[in-house]
Design a protein around this nucleic acid. Structure first.
Lengths: 222, 222
DNA sequence: ACTTTTTTGTAGTGATAACTTCAAAAAGTC
DNA sequence: GACTTTTTGAAGTTATCACTACAAAAAAGT
């Protein structure tokens, strides 16, 4: 009952996502969203409550739609290196796809800000942590199933690959060619498995120069 | 001649840099800068002309002061892997230092935005390109001097490491521990040199699924 | 046709953004 | 001490921000 919506909720969220993705959360005004959807601001507030909440819905939509590369990698039973290579390549393909804004929506919309300084960064926190968690699971499973020796622990490699994904997103923004991106994925995935030769298999050294920030927030150890 | 400045230019720029670094360009208002320096906005505009220009000066200051890890790596005559490991570790140490805001100032201040959408991103463009250029030079020199077989061309590895640096900055923001960061640097640097075993030395494969954005902007090939 | 329910468009709210105006203040020079 | 030069502080300007008030519009139920 009641007057029907001019634009259905699902489409509104997807259009909003693409705007946040392209312009970033801060630089996307409610007026931008309103005119992109062809409705007045009152409709947006009636449907979603606030700009923050619309962003939250948009990121949830992104996480459940555009990050299938992790599920694909988990479905197959490949060894560590090909599994990671496939994951990175598929992610890079999404980041560089002409059908959606460049880069990773989580990175591009929330910027590089820390969760404390930015509303948007706080909202994307959970998505980033979940990706890292699932990558750790993937590596642990693949190495166990294939008896693969890793260059570091699954949880550390997951952090490394989390950083790699963010780097890939940035490289796409820089305009790096897709062919180069794919080779970078190959280099990065090869780094995950230990070399057989006489080289040191798993470096464990630590301290470098100067005092450094010791940190608090952590994803659980696997 | 004339009335002396309340706060000298150099100190003003450094204080501004740290604010941009911590909060990002967009979220740092002129009022923030003004109150952080203890002077009125008219003084800032008299001295620097605009917020954009002050940011430009701050980034130039950062590039000439906080990125010495590249010069250090270039000065030594180490082989590729230890040179890159040292570069990454030193960069990570700067990013995680408690004496300055977390992460890389170029990334944190300009966010993840593309140069077209953000004034700040356009200003940091040159710095990022110069870093990548110098890393390519470092790799080429080190591999030539030590006869090292690389896992990919110097220009591609430079792109990979450019992405790695950005990823490291993000990991620091995420709160990853310094000890983990250092191990990640080890994994990343080991990926640059070819393995001796029976494994494929330099993968060259390309196409993945779907159509992808072919890009324009490129740093020159080495 | 009348009521009920929800969405819509228009206009406007106070807050904050970057930036400017201008006269007083603080120095050197004669 | 008067003149010149530059910086400073306080107040103000215009634009845009997220968000809201409210009545007309468009559907369903009776």
């Amino acid at each position: 009952m009641g007057r029907p919506r001019k634009v259905p909720e699902e489409e509104a969220i997807d259009r909003a996502l693409r705007l946040f993705w392209k312009q970033g959360y801060d630089r996307t005004s409610v007026a931008d969203l309103s005119s992109a959807l062809g409705v007045g601001p009152s409709s947006l507030y009636n449907a979603f409550g606030s700009k923050q909440n619309l962003f939250r819905r948009a990121i949830e939509h992104y996480a459940s739609t555009y990050t299938s590369f992790i599920d694909h990698a988990l479905e197959g039973d490949l060894d560590v290196e090909p599994a990671i290579r496939g994951l990175l390549r598929e992610a890079a393909a999404v980041y560089a796809s002409p059908d959606s804004p460049p880069g990773c929506a989580v990175m591009q919309s929330a910027g590089a800000a820390s969760p404390g300084d930015s509303e948007a960064a706080a909202i994307t926190l959970e998505v980033k942590a979940e990706v890292e968690r699932q990558i750790a699971v993937l590596i642990e499973k693949a190495s166990r199933n294939h008896g693969t020796r890793l260059s570091a622990s699954p949880r550390l490699l997951a952090k490394y690959l989390n950083g790699t994904l963010r780097g890939l997103s940035q490289l796409v923004i820089d305009g790096v060619a897709v062919s180069d991106l794919m080779q970078i994925c190959d280099v990065a995935s090869a780094a995950c498995v230990a070399v057989d030769g006489p080289t040191d298999p798993a470096p464990t050294s630590s301290s470098s120069e100067g005092a450094m920030r010791e940190t608090v927030q952590e994803v659980e150890d696997t």
